[in-house]
């Protein structure tokens, strides 16, 4: 046959493609770990920074074999006691400003597929994006922990993770909850270790297994990035951690999140000061918006992060 009527001959009547009323989301990290910070509300206070007093020990330091108390507080009958000066230190948690602005022309709203509320699609993405910026700034603090485990250029080991946790205990951290935060590479290293073969085996293999107590979660972190429990503490995985040593390594950590117990014992590792909660505003009636025939959407906030307790966290710095 010849002279059929086709989509080519009738291309003015047929669609070559038609936009479907869906939007496939981009794959992206989500902010979850900022919830580990102890929050300080400075909204409506005349400052952009929270000053948080910190107790200074006059009775020695952790694991010092009693050096600060072995004779310092001995008393003798009839002999006057000397004063002990008490001092404090402080942490300043300064709120930084975050903001996302998107301007959508009226034409986009008029010409977009009716099944998609284009303004909602765009607006609803702004909050997760801004919180991701918060999370990135929070995770940058992990590298500032003074105590570290791991060696540059060397993959994460089981011993590293154990040492990260036991370090907290040695430094007299009293915590009812710990959290491991690992870079994706570190988690991959560890999951690889868990299936590695060897010709040698621990003498007390069953005890070693209990000591490690690696308990993968039901979905291995596919929904919430908590891949497992390690020695009873959740192991969180993220791709937002910083690098160290000019990109040779990544920085994870074992920290104490904010809980009632951890806040009370001074164990909580990080703080978050909230000065302005996320605020979403739209403008389609100002001179600028009208002149541009568009709608301006702005989401902004003011928050800050700081390290509260240096000794209650251990940075885990291992090969990237």
């Amino acid at each position: 046959m010849a002279a059929e009527s086709t989509t080519t001959s009738l291309d003015d009547l047929t669609h070559s493609s038609l936009v479907q009323p869906v939007l496939i989301k981009a794959l992206s990290a989500r902010a979850r770990l900022i919830a580990f910070c102890r929050q300080f509300n400075i909204i409506a206070q005349a400052t952009n920074a929270a000053k948080i007093p910190v107790q200074t020990s006059y009775w020695g330091s952790a694991n010092d074999d009693g050096a600060g108390v072995d004779t310092e507080f001995n008393a003798s009958e009839g002999t006057a006691l000397g004063n002990t000066q008490v001092s404090t230190s402080s942490i300043t948690c300064t709120a930084a400003e975050y903001g996302v602005q998107i301007t959508v022309t009226d034409n986009v709203g008029e010409d977009s597929v009716s099944g998609i509320d284009i303004f909602n699609v765009i607006g609803n993405t702004m909050l997760p994006v801004m919180m991701l910026a918060w999370e990135d700034d929070y995770l940058a603090l992990l590298a500032s922990l003074s105590n570290t485990v791991g060696s540059s250029g060397v993959d994460l080991t089981v011993a590293n993770l154990i040492a990260a946790q036991t370090g907290l205990r040695v430094r007299e951290t009293e915590a009812d909850r710990l959290e491991f935060i690992l870079d994706n590479q570190q988690a991959s290293d560890f999951e690889g270790l868990m299936v590695a073969t060897s010709t040698s085996m621990a003498v007390y293999a069953m005890a070693a297994d209990r000591a490690i107590n690696w308990q993968p979660t039901a979905d291995n972190g596919m929904t919430n990035r908590v891949v497992a429990g390690f020695r009873g503490s959740p192991v969180n995985v993220t791709g937002l951690t910083d690098t160290a040593n000019a990109g040779a390594d990544v920085v994870g950590a074992c920290i104490c999140p904010s809980t009632a117990f951890n806040d009370s014992s001074g164990a909580t590792t990080h703080a978050m000061a909230v000065k302005r909660l996320p605020r979403f505003r739209t403008d389609n009636s100002s001179a600028i918006a009208i002149g541009g025939r568009g709608t301006i959407m702005v989401l902004d906030s003011r928050v800050g992060f700081a390290e509260l307790q240096d000794g209650s966290g251990t940075a885990i710095i291992t090969d990237a």
Partner: peptide, 23 residues
């Protein structure tokens, strides 16, 4: 990346906005 290079007690080069201080 929003910080400055610092050297921590273990000798790692890291990025930090502040370095821990003691009073």
């Amino acid at each position: 990346c929003g910080g400055w290079y610092a050297v921590n007690p273990s000798g790692h080069l890291i990025a930090a906005k502040t370095i821990p201080m003691r009073k």
